[in-house]
Computed example of a mutant assay.
Amino acid sequence: MRAIRAVTAGAVALAVAAAAGCRGGADAAPPHTGPLRVGLAYDIGGRGDKSYNDAAAAGIDEAKRNLSGMRVKEVAAARGEPARRKVERVRALAEAGYDPIIAVGYSYAPALRRIAPRFPRTRFAILDEPSVSGPNITNLLFAEEQGSFLMGAAAAMKSRTGDVGFVGGNRSPLVRKFEVGYVQGVKHVNPRARIRIVHLTGPHDLRGFESPAKARRAARRMYRAGADVIYQVAGASGAGVFRAAKCAGAWAIGVDYDQAKSADPAVRDVILTSMIKRIDVAVYDYLADVADRTVTSGRVVYDLKLGGVDYSLTGGHITDIQPRLEQLKQEIIHGRVKVSPG
C-alpha cells in the first residue's frame, strides 16, 4: 500500500490535479491543524458487506494505524432510504465539525452538490463520481474498465462452453464501465463467445446491491442456460452469484475486494479471481494528503499503471493463464490495447 501511496500522493496526484485545472494555490484546501476528525459515509451495506464498503473501511483502518490521533465517525445508508437521507447524513457530519468527509459511492453526488458549497472550509471526497465538483471536493476515481477487461479475458480463457455472464447490481453508468470492459476482454480472447448480461435493478435503484436472493436466481438461470463463468458487480448481492456458482459447479468472478478471502468459506473455491479495486489505497492516500496539507480538489484516477485496479491470484485457479493476463496488462498500460470506458 505504501509503495502505491508514494506514487499517487506525489507526482500523479499533482499531475491529475493540473490536468483538471487545479493548482496548489486557489484550489488547495486550507491548512489542517490538530488530529483529523474524519466523517465516513458508507453506501448501502456499510462496513461488513465483504465488497465495496469494506474496501473503503480497509483504507480507514490503515489510516488509523498510521496517522496519529485520527478519529473517525462512520455512518451507513439504510436499505430503501429516500435520497434526502444522504443529504441529511452529510450535513450532520459537516455540522458536527468532521473534516474531511468521505462519501463512499456515486449515490452521494446530490448530497455533496448541496452541502459542500455551504461548508467551504470542510474538505470532501467522493468515490466513483466525476460529475460533482468544487474547490473543496476531491473525486477518487478508478479505471474499472481496465481491470474488468482482464476479468473478461480470464473468463474467456477459462470457459469451456464459450458462454459467460455478467450480473450488475443496477444499470448505472458506473456498473456500465465494468460491463463494457468485461465484454471487451471476453471478445478480445474469443470473438465468438456468448455473453449473457443481467442488471438486477434500474439505474437509480440501489436495492440491487443488497439482494443476494435475486442475484442468485439471475445467475442460476445463466448457468442453466450454458454459462460457466459469471462476473458479478453487485456489492453484497454478489454472495448470491457465488452460491449459484457453487450449486452449478461453475466459476464466478469477484469484484472490488479479493473475495476468495472475504466471501463465505463455503463458496471461496468457486471464485475464479477478483477484480481488485484499490479503494483502500485511494482512501488512505486522500487522508494522508489531508494530513500532509497537500490535498487538492478535482480528479485523481487510479488505473492499471498505478496499481489502482488489478486481479487476484488467491486459490491458484488462474495460475495457468497468468502469463497471458500479465501480457495483456502491459499492453493496456503501454497503450497497445485500448479499453473504452463506455
Results as ranks from 00 to 15, higher is better:
R220W: 04
V281D: 08
W251D: 03
A225V: 10
R243Y: 11
V255Y: 00
A234G: 10
C247D: 15
Y286D: 11
L304E: 11
P265K: 01
G249F: 07
G254V: 07
A266Y: 03
I230Y: 01
F242W: 05
V301F: 02
A244P: 04
V241P: 01
R220Y: 04
A260L: 06
D285E: 11
V241S: 05
R299Q: 15
I271Y: 02
R293F: 03
A248H: 05
K261P: 04
G254A: 04
Q259Y: 11
R224N: 08
R220C: 09
Y231T: 01
A227Q: 05
L287D: 02
I253K: 00
I276P: 03
D256T: 12
A218G: 06
Y302R: 08
V255A: 14
G298P: 09
D292I: 11
R207C: 02
R207S: 13
S211Q: 07
A218N: 07
A252Y: 02
I276E: 14
A219H: 07
E210G: 13
T294A: 13
A282H: 09
S211D: 10
V290Q: 05
A227W: 00
V295N: 11
T273H: 10
G249V: 02
A266W: 01
T273S: 13
Y284L: 12
P265S: 12
D264A: 03
A263C: 04
R293K: 14
P212Q: 08
I230E: 02
A282E: 05
A213F: 11
G240V: 07
R220T: 14
D303K: 09
R217V: 15
A248V: 05
A282G: 04
D285S: 06
V300P: 03
S297T: 15
S297E: 13
A245L: 05
A219F: 08
V241I: 10
R221P: 06
R299V: 15
D303Q: 12
A282F: 03
I276M: 10
K214V: 09
K246R: 15
V267A: 01
A234T: 03
S274Y: 06
R224W: 04
I271E: 00
S211L: 09
S211V: 00
A282T: 09
Y284K: 06
V241K: 05
D289F: 01
R268L: 09
G208R: 02
P265R: 04
R216F: 04
A282M: 12
R268G: 02
A263H: 00
R217D: 12
T296A: 12
A260T: 04
L272K: 00
V233F: 02
Q232S: 10
R293M: 13
Q232K: 11
M275E: 14
R221G: 10
A248N: 11
S211N: 06
A234L: 08
T273V: 07
C247H: 14
R220P: 04
A236W: 12
A239Q: 08
Q232L: 12
R278V: 05
A218Y: 00
L272H: 00
D258G: 06
D280S: 09
V300K: 08
G238M: 07
V301S: 10
A291F: 05
I271H: 01
R224L: 13
A213T: 12
S274Q: 06
I276F: 08
A225N: 13
A218L: 03
G254T: 03
V300T: 14
G298T: 14
V229H: 01
T273K: 06
A245E: 06
S237G: 13
Y284I: 12
L304G: 09
